[in-house]
């Protein structure tokens, strides 16, 4: 996704396989954490609970979300798709936080 298609097709099968694994691992670890973190921050504000409990509930839920994204990052049909979907998923809480001004 970051590399040009040409470069990608020129590589040997092994190297391409390793690149895909690297890309998906980065997505799983970094993207997954980003999504979990943004969701936690957003849900802590959005959940219809008293404030401390909303924070607690959002934080408790975050690890399940993280785990789900990690598994999805490796299970998605293509690495490109995994990146796109994760980006889309991250956008939702990010926009919510921007509106709330909590990302300032």
């Amino acid at each position: 996704m970051l590399m040009s298609y040409r470069f990608f097709t020129d590589l040997s099968a092994t190297a391409r396989y390793r690149l895909v694994i690297l890309s998906r691992s980065l997505l799983a670890i970094g993207g997954g954490y980003l999504f979990a973190a943004l969701s936690t921050a957003s849900l802590a504000l959005a959940l219809p609970l008293p404030r401390p409990q909303a924070v607690l509930a959002a934080t408790q839920l975050s690890f399940a979300l993280y785990c789900a994204v990690i598994i999805w990052a490796f299970a998605a049909a293509s690495a490109r798709r995994a990146w796109l979907v994760t980006a889309g998923l991250c956008a939702v809480p990010a926009i919510h936080l921007l509106f709330k001004g909590a990302l300032s």
């Binding site: 973190a37 936690t40 849900l43 504000l45 909303a54 924070v55 408790q60 909590a102």
Partner: peptide, 28 residues
């Protein structure tokens, strides 16, 4: 994980309490 959760995932406290853990714990 939950026992580590404020270290791993402090972002809920960050957004709802501007990162003020003390305020969060005393309100909780």
């Amino acid at each position: 994980l939950l026992l580590f959760m404020y270290m791993l995932m402090p972002w809920g406290v960050s957004s709802a309490y501007q990162g003020d853990m003390q305020a969060y714990f005393s309100e909780a």
